[in-house]
Design a protein around this nucleic acid. Sequence first.
DNA 1: TATAAGTGGATAGCAAGCTATGTTTTATGA
DNA 2: TCATAAAACATAGCTTGCTATCCACTTATA
Lengths: 152, 152
Amino acid sequence: MFYDRFRSTGYMTNWLARLIARAIDARLKPIGMSSGYMPVMFALAHGAALSQRALTEFAAIEQPTMAATLSRMERDGLIVRRADPDDRRAWLYSLSAEGLDKSIKVQEAGREINEAALAGLSGSEREAFLAALAKVVSNLESYLTKAKPADA
Amino acid sequence: MFYDRFRSTGYMTNWLARLIARAIDARLKPIGMSSGYMPVMFALAHGAALSQRALTEFAAIEQPTMAATLSRMERDGLIVRRADPDDRRAWLYSLSAEGLDKSIKVQEAGREINEAALAGLSGSEREAFLAALAKVVSNLESYLTKAKPADA
DNA sequence: TATAAGTGGATAGCAAGCTATGTTTTATGA
DNA sequence: TCATAAAACATAGCTTGCTATCCACTTATA
């Protein structure tokens, strides 16, 4: 029997990620935001001022991706940046008044979509699912770091 | 206690999808392919000739995304297309000799990454994980189709 | 204290998603 | 039959992600 993509972690995960992003974007677009902004909104929600580097690590994305995201968020008036007084290379980002206000809507949207996603799963099924997700992420992380030196 | 993104389906799923895509791309790039080609490679692997519409449905993506993917695959010599004799609007896509040859590598890469992803999970844990993924995808599908008419 | 190495960001260029919209052909129905 | 609706594909424009590379500034070291 050949490859059943509905039983492929890669296929299903990609599909699910796109569906969730679409659902989030549908909720956030009317208030001028989108799914890529979420990690930044969460990181800065309590008034923190973080560097691009810190935000990049928080969101677990690559630095140029974060740079582009921050640039769009600044364009949209959600964040402000000031020079880091201790390092002339760096900037410190924080939420604008508008961004702080909207960060509540972002949390609501996140909770709503997560709840819709897990509908019909029991408490223990949810626990098992989230635990498996964490395990699989960790597997892939080590798979990717292991692959690099082997090539060299 | 505030939002724990490591227990958010949306966050973890997005993270996992990116990790898997990276792992796949690392395997496929040396042979001139990438993760977005996979559904098409699978759909056409046994010599089928399908329309863009059929491929779009198979891959569960939007039509313009498939159009762009097919255009890159044609550029890379993996597929050929001929006019549909029964419908002058449509094209029929199939794998080139090179594409057919490479489709085996794609399946191998898919199996390898899926296995790496699920490492350390027991048989029943894998079953539960895949079942939960299917359930959550189906939840999101109906959430999205439900949301539209409510807005109108 | 110079120089070398390392770090924070910026930029270029591409892939893979999406929505919205246009064009051509096919199908329907009054 | 002919007008209209529907379908297949193309195109524009945007977001979010990646790798590779460069510049400027800091830090470490000979």
